[in-house]
Amino acid sequence: MRRVWSWAALIVGGLYFLLPLIGTIEFSLRMRRGEYSLDAYRSVLSDPNFRATFSYSVAMAALTILLGVLIVVPTAYWVRLRLPRLRPVIEFITLLPLVIPAIVVVFGYIRLYNTSSILPLTGTASGTNLLLLCGYATLALPYMYRAVDTGLSTLDVRSLTEAAQSLGAGWARIIVRLILPNVLGAVMSGAFLSFAIVIGEFTMAALLNRPAFGPYMQLLGANRAYEPAALAVIAFAVTWGCMGVMQLISRLFGTRMQAK
């Protein structure tokens, strides 16, 4: 009897997740009347805007991950090493982006850094890109911090630090040579989530008027019938592909140290 129920749950769940996906794929193949074809995909892939926005978003995602690692790893490490009592506070701060809507964050940015402010970042494209990058890093913060902090909890941070210090290592070497490699798996899982968030992000990119993939999907969805479905499938495949690659990389590193 229990068997039956678990199968039922699995089937319902499977339908809930897979049906929309199957429906989207099926619909994306119907551009030519009366037969299945890849016309919609051809149309999307030949669109220069698709390539431009998608590569823009991938680049932003990579930079977001980099910035996130640069901010989060030393912070989480330092908090664990020297300020353990501040951990709940830091954790709360890193969770704020989940509570504060992206639109509030981006309006705050625009107010603070508009062309008539002291730091007119929105005045130039690169300045706006920087602003968007910071916004993305903020959005990714909760996931990144959690992942890295969990990774650090498997290490004896204090002893490792002291051992390295007694061997003459300074802070930079300790973080780059010891802490970062040992939390790489955790950093990777934070990176997956950051990547997925940035690829699909709409609000910030749209309001800062940057040519990102999110706004492009929205634009296409508002004006075409079959192409958005094809685009959704492509975005899905590429995102999963990227995650697979990252997973693979972290596996390769992981086999070197399955100590814990």
Binding site: D156, S159, N182, M257
Partner: peptide, 13 residues
């Protein structure tokens, strides 16, 4: 100074 710890503290990576 060379130091040896109770927990070994070898670098796992």
């Amino acid at each position: 100074i060379g130091m040896v710890f109770q927990s070994y503290a070898l670098f796992p990576n």
